[in-house]
Design a protein around this nucleic acid. Structure first.
Lengths: 152, 152
DNA sequence: GTGAAGTTTCAGTAATGATTGAAGATTCGG
DNA sequence: CCGAATCTTCAATCATTACTGAAACTTCAC
């Protein structure tokens, strides 16, 4: 059984602590460190010592998050091939935007409930202003990254 | 028993899904929505229907993360008082910087292992470049927020 | 000092979430 | 079409994490 490198496993652990599901993180790191362009599910099972079911679920998650994608299988190979999306890291970061939006809307709701000038209202306005700022600035930041990357 | 508002509980859930410990998130939201300047541990226990031990642990976490702070107790009250730090949301976001740094360093390690030009090396360089960019830009973004906030 | 009120720690338990394994569905070559 | 290979789903199990309750510790008024 060909294990994943220790560095890859360590990265998976970091991603897990940052909130990603464990198996999804491990599969992502296996895709990151794999020495081919693409990988198949059975290969991932072997490298990770995990069941086909677990890998299938993790791949589904990664694809739905747009971190990985299914590639057309080479002729004569029936197995699905997967790879990381080149812009996966930016996507991962951008996916926090809808969280920012939720925070903003929740703050607004809270203000509705308690009024603008109560102690809670003041705190909620701080929160709202911050997330409004972030929601304005983050997409622009990621766009600048794509821009920079394109001209390279 | 005075429960926390439904909006507050919902926000706690969002923070939990974003990776925060459950009880820490609930305490943070109770502090956010509370209608006094400060709150005591027993009040939090009552509002959250949680044990003193759980609240104590959550407060310790929040203080160590610089999201909440212990206030000097008013004369004649032996109980500790807590409040959210006004800049808590910015702190929460900034705390991801050391994660960015970890990602950057792990990518570098990976490149050491596999070389710059292998398929894995190319992917790892993508990753490294992205996190280097983020690590350069994020602190500046938060600084601009503090700047803006100060002039208001 | 002494005792009452408050806080923290920690072992045990409860709740939660992740993984397996097997059965069913799908896909493709022959 | 049929059968083999692969993939997906899901119920049961296992592992992890979070919470409680009780005991130990701290702090302060008297």
């Amino acid at each position: 059984m060909t294990d994943m490198s220790a560095t890859a496993e360590r990265l998976a652990l970091v991603l897990t602590q940052a909130g990603m599901q464990r198996m999804a993180a491990r599969v992502m790191c296996a895709l990151l460190f794999c020495e081919e362009e693409t990988t198949t599910a059975p290969e991932l099972c072997e490298q990770l010592g995990a069941s086909a079911g677990a890998v299938s679920g993790a791949l589904k998650t990664l694809v739905s998050l747009r971190l990985a994608e299914r590639m057309p299988a080479p002729a004569g190979d029936r197995r699905d091939h997967y790879r990381l999306r080149p812009d996966g890291w930016a996507v991962m970061t951008s996916s926090r935007d809808h969280l920012l939006d939720t925070m903003l809307r929740t703050a607004d709701e809270g203000i509705e409930e308690v009024g603008e000038d109560s102690p809670a209202g003041l705190r909620l306005r701080e929160m709202r202003d911050f997330y409004a700022y972030m929601l304005r600035e983050m997409p622009a930041l990621i766009d600048r990254w794509h821009e920079q990357r394109r001209v390279r």
